[in-house]
Computed example of a mutant assay.
Amino acid sequence: MSRQKTLEQHDRLSLDMSPVGMTVMPATHVQETCHPCTQATLAFGCDLLQASSAILFWVDSAHFVQTIELTGTEADLLPEYFNNGFYTYDPLSIRKVLNGSNNVLMLDHERSHNSHDHNQIHDTFLQRHGIVDEINFLFRNENDAVALLSVMKRQVDRTPFPTDFQWEALRRYMEFTLQQHPQMRDRRICRALKEKFQLTNKEVEVVFLLEKGASNWEISEIMHIGVSTVKTHIVNILNKTGVGSRAAVAAYMRSL
């Protein structure tokens, strides 16, 4: 879809953000297509709520942004938001949403927890991009936050967000749609490998690379470790999982 893009982070973006020194876009690659699950979620959220813009942030277990997928959003919005520090004043900043307990957050409500000065600064950013309202949906996988969807109303959208709406039901529906996304699958498998077989983070990373058919040398290059260390990880993986070969590990992964 021409309106939808994916921003893949080559260097992870920390959301434990300091006031300065945060740069997003130079480490980002832009693609014109995104996964069908994401296409469906972005389109459904915008169409149902009659909104023209939406952004989906995928985060890992450490709350680092992995991927950004968006629709109806101009190219300079995110660079200005991050690089000029407007996230500092945003009552719906990614860090605040991920660290909170609510799964659905409305801009007007969250503004009440912000200072007047911070709201004024944030308003200048919104007005510059024609944004008049915003609602955020937090998606989880077994209670772990995995993605954040921001749906934005613009001046051209005319109608405001409905005041009487089953927001949690909508969030659960979109969360269900996203279950088949590779990000969701990887998180489920990662948890299963750690809980069932007691694999370490490094061993889990090796398992995912084995699934892709990577050689020991390729794993060494990707993970920046020695080939002997790769071999040690593989031996540990085989012992913990009880399978007989690296091919069996890959086959097991494909069965999940």
Rank of each mutant, 00 (worst) to 15 (best):
122 H>C: 05
199 L>Q: 02
102 N>F: 12
181 H>L: 05
39 Q>K: 10
96 K>Y: 00
46 C>P: 03
204 V>H: 00
161 F>E: 08
13 L>C: 04
111 R>H: 06
230 V>R: 01
115 S>Q: 03
255 S>L: 05
182 P>H: 01
243 V>Y: 09
51 A>G: 07
237 I>N: 10
133 D>V: 10
197 F>I: 01
239 N>E: 15
191 R>W: 10
16 D>F: 13
228 S>Y: 05
100 G>L: 01
75 A>H: 11
245 S>E: 03
160 P>Y: 02
2 S>F: 11
32 E>P: 06
91 P>L: 06
35 H>M: 07
156 V>S: 13
186 D>Q: 14
165 F>K: 01
147 A>H: 03
12 R>A: 12
175 E>K: 00
253 M>D: 00
156 V>M: 08
31 Q>A: 12
59 V>D: 09
77 L>V: 15
245 S>P: 07
179 Q>A: 11
145 A>K: 07
159 T>I: 14
148 L>F: 08
111 R>L: 10
102 N>T: 14
63 H>G: 03
62 A>S: 14
227 V>I: 15
70 L>G: 02
248 A>R: 09
126 L>E: 10
236 N>I: 01
175 E>G: 09
83 N>F: 02
83 N>T: 09
153 K>Y: 05
164 D>S: 12
177 T>M: 15
42 L>D: 08
212 K>Q: 15
237 I>P: 07
243 V>N: 02
55 I>M: 13
230 V>D: 04
23 T>F: 13
156 V>H: 04
90 D>S: 07
29 H>K: 09
13 L>H: 09
210 L>P: 04
126 L>M: 15
71 T>G: 04
107 L>E: 10
256 L>C: 12
54 A>H: 08
171 R>M: 11
164 D>P: 00
169 A>K: 11
109 H>S: 15
8 E>W: 07
208 F>V: 02
222 I>N: 08
243 V>K: 02
4 Q>I: 13
228 S>D: 15
163 T>G: 13
72 G>S: 02
232 T>R: 12
241 T>K: 06
158 R>S: 13
206 V>C: 11
230 V>I: 12
188 R>V: 11
45 G>Y: 00
84 N>E: 15
142 E>N: 14
155 Q>D: 14
15 L>H: 02
52 S>K: 02
33 T>P: 04
173 Y>M: 14
202 K>P: 01
231 K>Q: 15
6 T>Q: 14
209 L>G: 00
36 P>W: 01
